[in-house]
Amino acid sequence: MDYFIELLFSGLTRGSIYALIALGYTMVYGIIGLINFAHGEIYMIGAFTAFIVATILSILGFPALAIIVLAGLAAVVWSASYGYTIEKIAYKPLRHAPRLSPLISAIGMSMFLQNYVLLAQTSDFLPFPQLISDFNFMEPVAHIVGSTDLVILVTTTVVMICLTILIKYTKIGKAMRATSQDRMMAMLVGINVNRIISVTFIIGSSLAAIGGMLIASHIGQINFYIGFIAGIKAFTAAVLGGIGSIPGAVLGSVVLGLTESFATGYVSSDYEDVFAFSLLVLILIFKPSGILGKADTQKV
């Protein structure tokens, strides 16, 4: 039973990280219909930024809490800036291009960023400092649920609630929803669509950065390639839930996280990534609209 609960929690932890990344995919897709292939790299850059800042601060002898907050803040600021810049360079000029052009551009951007970090930093795995020390009150259940897991779950939940409020109740959130329904119409009623797209990239990237920092401190190491796998898995989660749908992304992520956790726990860990990829292929083939997504009919 303990093992089951352990797997359950590790699945939820995974799932909530996927959710942080998947939200970026789903929001961008909802607004400009693009699979932002470089999104995984934003997450990776977030993890690197957090790593660099956290290491410097710990050398300078800052207290743990300050390190976590500042490193997280830095990760968010820089990832958001990257997201913003990437959109301006690689996607904005292609707003009216054939559908595949921005996707190819996104793949190029993803390769560029991976190798940029590889060349500017290193190709080795870097040990990520353990930012979150074990809580005393977690002692009795520490063999089942780690303190980091708890922090991740709590953080993710808080972030999700904030995001929901932002999208549901603020002016910018309403503008985002309007733009995703009908960009032309949104433009006609005076919404600055370019700004909304930028904001979407910024929010999505910030979430990915938080995810990046959390997962890096959870797994304990990072390298330039972590974004690729995480990106594909988060994308899988987004599609599973129904791409374009925000609750769908969260649901899909949790389902994917749990599936992976139980599959590796009870079946075999060799094929961990194969599970995710197979799931992706199967959903796209049999139910491309996902669990909560709407089937999109092409207008003739």
């Binding site: 594909i232 060799d270 094929y271 990534d273 990829f277 197979s278 992706l280 292929v281 796209l284 083939i285």
Partner: peptide, 26 residues
Amino acid sequence: VLRLRGDYLAIVTLGFGEIIRLILEN
């Protein structure tokens, strides 16, 4: 997979490529 829309097709083929590689590896 060829029934799928363009960008989905791209991702499915990517997944398929990775599956083949992972199978060869494992």
